[in-house]
Structure formats: C-alpha cells, structure tokens
C-alpha cells in the first residue's frame, strides 16, 4: 500500500518537477539559555519536493521547523527564502510569504467549528475591514461566500464534509489532525511545514494522511517539509531526508542514501530497530 503510493508520487507523469532551492538554511545555531537545540545546521529545500526531517526525541526537529517560519530566531546562521536573505522574521511574515504549518501538539481553535477553523486559515486573503464586517451585507458577505467556496474545496479534498459544523473539540484525535491540515491548506501555501502529522494515529488514519500529503504535493505542487517518526512512511514518501541527532545534522540525502549511511544507522536507525 505505502509502496504503491510512493510510486505514484514519483512517477514522471504525475507532473511534479523538483525545482530550484526555495529555502536555504546555512549554519543555523539555536540556543535556549544553556541548551543547544541546533548546532551549525545547513540544508536546503527544493521547490515541489517532500523533504523530511527525522531524528530521535529532542533532536531539534520541531525547533528547526520553528526557525523556518520565524517562531524561533536562531542566534547564528542565515536563511535564504527564494534567494533573499532574511534576518528577523516573525510568523506573520512567514504566513504572508506563503508558509503554512501544523503543530506537533494539535493547535486548533477549540471553541470554533471545523468550518470556522478552516475559514480562519484564509484570513490573510480576506480584504474587508471591521466596518464592512459590522454591516455584513455587501462586500463582506460576497467575500465570505467567495472564500467559503475555496474552503469547501479543501473540505472535499480532505473528505471531512460530514464534520463541517462540528466544534473541533469534540472530534477524535485523528480527525483533529486532519482539520489542522485543512486549515493550513486553506491558505494555499507554497511551503507547508508538517510537524508529526501522523503521530498517534492508527494504521488506517496514517494511510489516509499519507495519501493526502502526497496528493497535496502532487496536485498543488506544494513544497512539504515533514517531521515524522514512522520510518516506513518517511522512506516511502520523501524525496530527501535530513537526519538530526542532539541538535546536529548527521545525515542528508535520498531515503536510500540515508538508510545506508553508517552514522545514521549507528545513531538513529540502529537505536530504534
């Protein structure tokens, strides 16, 4: 099953072309007080690829993602996004540049319905202001309907039609993860950062999530950075894999290269298999 899906993703007729480097991280170091979360890490992400980050617990994977979209600011290193160096970036800027993400611990808006959560994902594309919202009829309503259409496409795509109006707090874990992906997709991102989107899921849910990730990548050409612990999944769907251990990069390459890298086997694969 997994292998089949991996093949569809890499088939030439899928229309997916790996392109230029869009995100280039150079010598990134990040410290929290005395804790070195990341030490001198360099790697890049190419357009349209699925780039995975793996490593044992506490290796610095989530920190890396947080650096990418400006939640954390590394003390050292440079980041080039589409060739432009950026120094300080906040999550809002990252969002305007087309970077969306999901969180390791689900970060949905608990008090809102599935539909409202996903609609919120489009907030940057909404141009009407508070006064127009106060009146509602007219521009605000037109905009609301226009974006609702887009959101319904995402809902269809992720097959969550039946839970549209449900408050997200009432959904089971697996579906919450899916809604969080929907909220990120609603922004029509060019770069999608996924922090363990399959953690805690059963086999069936994992397969669905795999399929969605591959479809997003394939149909919309979205570049994906994926953190995942399930080696089977990672090796199946990734184009390239970065391996972190204790905040250092210990491997980087295609799944096959990484699998056979002695350092990686020693530090990571060896430990868990």
């Amino acid at each position: 099953m997994m292998n089949e899906m991996a093949q569809t993703a890499t088939l030439p007729e899928s229309g997916r072309r790996i392109g230029e480097v869009i995100l280039d991280l150079k010598n990134i170091s990040l410290r929290f007080g005395g804790v070195k979360a990341l030490t001198d890490i360099s790697f890049d992400v190419r357009e349209h690829e699925i780039r995975s980050i793996i490593g044992p617990n506490g290796a610095g994977k989530s920190s890396m993602l947080n650096v990418m979209n400006g939640v954390y600011h590394p003390q050292e290193g440079t980041i080039l996004f589409r060739g432009e160096p950026r120094q300080q970036m906040d999550p809002h800027m990252a969002a305007t540049q087309g970077i969306a993400r999901t969180f390791q611990n689900i970060a949905l808006f608990k008090g809102m319905s599935v539909l409202d959560n996903i609609m919120t994902g489009r907030n940057l594309k909404m141009k009407t202001n508070l006064f127009q919202h106060a009146l509602f009829w007219g521009a605000a309503q037109r905009e609301e309907i226009e974006h609702r259409k887009k959101v319904e496409e995402v809902i269809d795509f992720l097959e969550i039609q039946s839970i549209r109006k449900t408050p997200v707090g009432r959904l089971p874990y697996g579906l919450q993860k899916r809604v969080e992906l929907a909220r990120a997709l609603a922004a029509e991102p060019t770069l999608l950062l996924l922090d363990e989107p399959m953690a805690g899921m059963n086999v069936e849910e994992k397969q669905d999530m795999c399929r969605f990730i591959l479809d997003v990548n394939d149909q919309f050409g979205t570049t994906i950075v994926l953190i995942e612990h399930d080696m089977g999944v990672v090796m199946d769907i990734s184009d390239r894999v970065v391996v972190l251990d204790y905040g250092k990069k210990i491997g980087d390459g295609t799944p096959d290269e990484v699998k056979n890298d002695p350092d990686v086997i020693a530090a990571y694969l060896g430990a868990s298999h």
Binding site: H92, T96, A107, M112, T120, N123, H133, E144, A184
Partner: peptide
C-alpha cells in the same frame, strides 16, 4: 460571524497558532 470575529476567537483559543496563520 465574519473574519473579525474569527480573528478574535482564534486569538482567544490559541494565540501562537493564530499568529502562524497570519493573524
């Protein structure tokens, strides 16, 4: 029931996630 309200509720429920989607 419009974007303004959703932004308020997003900040209420999870401000980090709200910022990450551009609020």
């Amino acid at each position: 029931r419009s974007t303004t309200g959703r932004r308020w509720m997003a900040v209420r429920d999870m401000d980090v996630a709200a910022e990450v989607i551009g609020i």
